[in-house]
Structures are given as structure tokens and as C-alpha cells.
Design a protein around this nucleic acid. Structure first.
Ligand SMILES: [Zn+2]
Ligand SMILES: [Zn+2]
Ligand SMILES: [Zn+2]
Ligand SMILES: [Zn+2]
Lengths: 161, 161
DNA sequence: CTAGTTATGTTATTTCATAACGCTGCGGGT
DNA sequence: ACCCGCAGCGTTATGAAATAACATAACTAG
């Protein structure tokens, strides 16, 4: 989305067609297992995130929500995002005020991101927080969640100017 | 600041009197060494951050800016914060949209925070990002900065309800 | 002094997020 | 079948956070 450069933002191509349908169906199945409801607005926002090539802002989702071009009302999208985050289907990237669909297998995981400051790509990776947990323990903190966002240049943007 | 509980937010008592003056003087000295200018608005915002018991929102700073109760204009404070962050005198906490003065000795360091979700305290600690750098290297990213914010309960809030 | 650069003052606007309230529809208990 | 409780949603309105744009002032180097 944030195309500050000319490089292809190809790191995370959006899903379409069968791949998209499969991803949504997997979310649907996971919801049924845990008695959660993937309602139409939630499903729609998840679709939009999965279709996107990169992080989407809340108001991008709001604008793209209606298939007929009608935008959603902000609470519709923010509520859906809250649900998707809670279930682990999406993540918020704090330093971008933006959202991405979860790209990792298995729910309930801890997320971390590599963010390209040139092309805007955001790649999720599996973090190792053992050093941080050790520091927290020394300080006496009981850690519940950890946000980690590394900013720099992706492989594509690193080579050229 | 965010007092969602009754526990004393004593982790980071604000500076006053001589301690405050010393901290500002140290920043002043460091600026002179690097030919940077600690101008009145910058100094004022730094003072406000140092005096505070916890993270301050930008609009808290705006409201508290004038000694006579006159608020600042938003750009005044945002510019000062940008400067203070650049010089390492302050940090932004992304997950709170708030700012803290740097509590670590020596400039140019990497910051990380333990944030209490009950009393709002934010404690800076020295992070070890070696595991994250390894992950970034595998992915081919050149990391420039890392944001790490661990959220949970501080020692004081952990014991009681 | 003069020109270039850095910082500030000011107005307005944009961007991001939530409060509040009533309606709907699904589920469990009787 | 009926009632009720609650999660979810639609809608209006507002609040909170950040920046754009442009004019003026203050340093600094030549
Ligand atoms: Zn994930
Ligand atoms: Zn890139
Ligand atoms: Zn610091
Ligand atoms: Zn606490």
C-alpha cells in the first residue's frame, strides 16, 4: 500500500480465487470449532485483508467494504478487526496503524513483523522472545502480550537506491 | 497516567527540583556537544516528560505546555517530540500513543518497554534483539530500528486483584 | 551584511478510533 | 411455544491523534 518506491511489493501477494476461498473456509472451520461466529461483516473484512498485497489501513477497509462501492461505517470495520485480532486471524501493526491477515499456521501464536520502510511490505515472522521474557522476569513483570516491529529495508529495496 | 487501578504508579516517579534541573542540564550539555539546539519549546516538552510519573499523551503535553495554563499548538509539541526522539531524549510508545523521557544512560541505544495494563506504568529496559536480528537476516531484511513493547502486569499490580 | 538554513507561530485539515443507543436474531430455560 | 438474555449490528455523532501548508523569525557560515 505505502508505495514510497518503485519496487514491486511482491513479498505478500494477495490471495484470489480458490486460495482466497480456502483461507476463508479455514477460518470458518476454526470458528465453528470454538463456537465463534464468522458473521458477514467479519468475513468481509477478512476477505479484504487476505486479498490485499500489504497492510491495510482501517479507512482503506472502510472504503473498500461494499462490493458496490458503498463504504462501511467505521464501527463496522473496527468491530470486525477486533474480532479478527482476538481470534488470531489478523494482526494490527502499531507503527503503521494498519492491519494484516495472519500468515502463520496455527492460532494463538505470538506475532512479529519485518516492515520495509521503502515499499511498505510487512512480513510476519515467528519471534523468539526468550531474552525479553528473561528481562521481564527480572523486573517482576507478568507479560501477557508482546509487540515487536522491526523496520528497515526488504531484500528487494535493499539492492537498489 | 492511565490509572485503571488504585495501585500507586510509583515505578517512575517524576523528577523535580534539582534532579529535574540536572537532567535538563545533562540534555543541554549533550546537545552542545553535538551542535544541536535545545530550544525553549524542546526544553519545555522535555521538562514536562521528566516531571511526569508515567507516559504522557501528546495532548496532555499540549494542555500542560504553558506555565500560565495556556495550551500549546499541536505542531509545537509534535516538533519538539520529534527532536527529542531523534536525539534519544524521549521515546514514543506505539501501543499507547504516548511518550516517555529516556531513562537509560548513554544515547543512541535501542529501547524496549514493559507496560503495565493495570496502572499504566511503563518501564524501559535494555533489549537483546539478537534472536530478532537473526530472523531478519534469514529473511534478507536490513533492520534499522526495532520497536518492542511487552504488555502485562507490573509487580505491584500483579499481587492484588 | 547577506544568503542559506533551521526553527517557530498559526490556521486549518486530515487521519484514526470510539461512545452511545436502539434494533435484531439466536440460544437456553421453562 | 414462549420469554429472556446477550452477542452482534446499524447508525449518528463525537473524540483523539497527527500533519499540511505557509508565513515569520532566528541562528550560522561566507
Ligand atoms: Zn499471525
Ligand atoms: Zn521494500
Ligand atoms: Zn531510552
Ligand atoms: Zn501496574
Amino acid at each position: 500500500m505505502g508505495a514510497e518506491c518503485h519496487h514491486a511489493e511482491s513479498a505478500q501477494p494477495g490471495l484470489e480465487g480458490v486460495a482466497l476461498a480456502n483461507a476463508v473456509a479455514a477460518a470458518q472451520a476454526q470458528c465453528e470449532r470454538t463456537r465463534e461466529r464468522l458473521t458477514p461483516p467479519r468475513r468481509r473484512v477478512l476477505e479484504l485483508l487476505l486479498e490485499s498485497d500489504g497492510p491495510m489501513k482501517a479507512y482503506d477497509l472502510i472504503a473498500a467494504y461494499g462490493q458496490d462501492g458503498e463504504p462501511a461505517k467505521p464501527p463496522t470495520v473496527y468491530r470486525a478487526l477486533e474480532f479478527l485480532e482476538r481470534l488470531g486471524f489478523a494482526h494490527r501493526i502499531e507503527s503503521l496503524n494498519a492491519y494484516v491477515p495472519c500468515r502463520m499456521e496455527g492460532a494463538g501464536h505470538r506475532a512479529a513483523f519485518l516492515i520495509c520502510e521503502c515499499c511498505g511490505a510487512a512480513q510476519e515472522f515467528e519471534p523468539d522472545f526468550s531474552a525479553q521474557f528473561a528481562a521481564a522476569e527480572i523486573a517482576g513483570y507478568a507479560v501477557r502480550t508482546v509487540t515487536l516491529e522491526a523496520r528497515g529495508l526488504c531484500p528487494a529495496c535493499k539492492v537498489q537506491t
